[in-house]
Design a protein around this nucleic acid. Sequence first.
DNA 1: TTGAAAGCGCTAACAG
DNA 2: CTGTTAGCGCTTTCAA
Lengths: 346, 346
Amino acid sequence: MSVTIYDVAKRAGVGIGTVSRAINNSGSIAPRTKEKVLAVVKELGYRPHASARGLARRRTNTIGVVVPFFTGYFFVELLRGIQGEVSKFQYDLILYNVDETNKKEMILRKVLQERKVDGMLLISLEMTNNEVWELRRSRLPIVLVDSYHPDLDSVTVENRRGAYVATQHLIRQGHSRIGMIDGHLKSSPARVRLEGYKNALRDHDIGFRREYLVISDYVTGEDGFNRKAGYQAMKQLLHLGSNRPTAVFVSSDIQAIGAMKAIEEDGLNVPNDMAIVGFDDIELAQYIGLTTMRQPMFEMGKLAVDRLVECITDVVTNGFKKVFHTSLIVRNTCGALRHQSHNQIT
Amino acid sequence: MSVTIYDVAKRAGVGIGTVSRAINNSGSIAPRTKEKVLAVVKELGYRPHASARGLARRRTNTIGVVVPFFTGYFFVELLRGIQGEVSKFQYDLILYNVDETNKKEMILRKVLQERKVDGMLLISLEMTNNEVWELRRSRLPIVLVDSYHPDLDSVTVENRRGAYVATQHLIRQGHSRIGMIDGHLKSSPARVRLEGYKNALRDHDIGFRREYLVISDYVTGEDGFNRKAGYQAMKQLLHLGSNRPTAVFVSSDIQAIGAMKAIEEDGLNVPNDMAIVGFDDIELAQYIGLTTMRQPMFEMGKLAVDRLVECITDVVTNGFKKVFHTSLIVRNTCGALRHQSHNQIT
DNA sequence: TTGAAAGCGCTAACAG
DNA sequence: CTGTTAGCGCTTTCAA
């Protein structure tokens, strides 16, 4: 069958212990022996069997990423960052998807007990205290990405501030009837962005109007951060007729794209009839000239992996919290550049 | 530490063999015993250790997906289909990414020898005869997706026919100066689509003009199926001035989006000055009204997994070839609907 | 420095 | 039907 450590040992005329030491540069081993063994390893094309090694070493060199649904573009960018960094550390990556069938608790329990992974990245996942307690008890290294819990390491973004700045930007363009389209409030970024939006209104003495807030949860089981949800939400705002807002802060770019479709269908113009600011800065935002709050998704993924690997390999103390900044990217949909030339593709 | 099969056995007052039989419903076991064991399993929250099981059983219940880069939107759709089906079969999914650092051969060898997965899906990966030979020798079940080799199972799409239909559609709109923007020719879909394009021209007595064909390989290391590449390629076509084509078949929607940006920047209009047909039907195609050839990405992923699992669990004969059909989705960028109303979001 | 041997936790063959 | 035992392939003491 496959070549094993015994084959290598026999061929090199040594014991299997020596082979193991050679390939792991562990213990002490004579340079000459090591060389000889490594030559045989290459000759036979030997590579340790992952399960055997995992069993003996209690480490799989695999990390798990748990994502709620395929949240789409945000997640893809993040995954890019994660994937690159993971493979840099010579780890493999298992993708766990939570949805209606695979409930979060089930997956977490499964992952914790099977010990198929050495650590986990939980993406945009709201954790209850109970769940956190279980996680900590299992001693499996965990890093939260795009969500927060005081007792776990996390990599997040300044959602409150970001939403605040976005809203403020709209206010500064002279708007006072400013709506918001948000994702489902079970998502904590969605909740926090709503706060930021409200704070900005309050600080500028603009009253919050319930009818100007639309929470997208159009499709059950999803988080509302998708194009259709944005489309539906904007339709709802447009039904307000002449009372409609003149500007809307949309909680994700992909929803903003849907929203703009709705506006266009109504024969209205962005930004003249309705100004829009999104959130995320996905690749397409640039293309369609969407003003948005950039979050450094790629870097977030990368950093989360760095931290996770650190937790796995070193003994570290808990309490890592990294909060990335968002930045306002002004393009055409907010009206600020109304009389300037279009931006270039870079 | 973690609860093992011994803990369960002791608590239930049986041997470990019995526990194993109970949780695997293998061998024969008295209903009462089984019940008792299962109760203890639940009580203790026992779950077999993946590595130990993998070692003993020689099966990991994991499948690997190898993708070249993150080919973007096409891949995301595919992954959706794959992920859903994989978890339906109770498998986990390891994502391997091939890029400059992680060369294809390295990854394949690694995967074949580590035996971390029970089977592999290779996405859009061109395989040499040599590689195929090694794959077959390893006896690891493999299914090719979006690429083809006579000696391996594969799930593909009618690229030639698709490109033919797209081009023909443009011809039928009255165009005779028809260009093509293609991905890098190391990608077999790119090559085959080029053939389809040429065939359509030939069958309609239109000469192939070298200057109307632009191969995007703008960014090294990528396959050209991205927005910037499409943008650059269209720029190049527009440099032809009044000799430029009046219609272009673009090999992927995401390139088409870039191409349309270039057209717009030149102050030209789609479809009046330049008609466009794309390929893929990614989610955004609908939004921007892009006429395109739809390929059933989700279904392709699903079917590939079905077949792979079949290969893993049953003894099957080689030679599975599924070719999905493409279908022309007429929207606004080809000019066919010039005088009709816009399409709706569905 | 190195070989031999004892597990790692589980499955599966083998007695009973 | 069920307990015992021999591996699965590797890492890691423990002597030598």
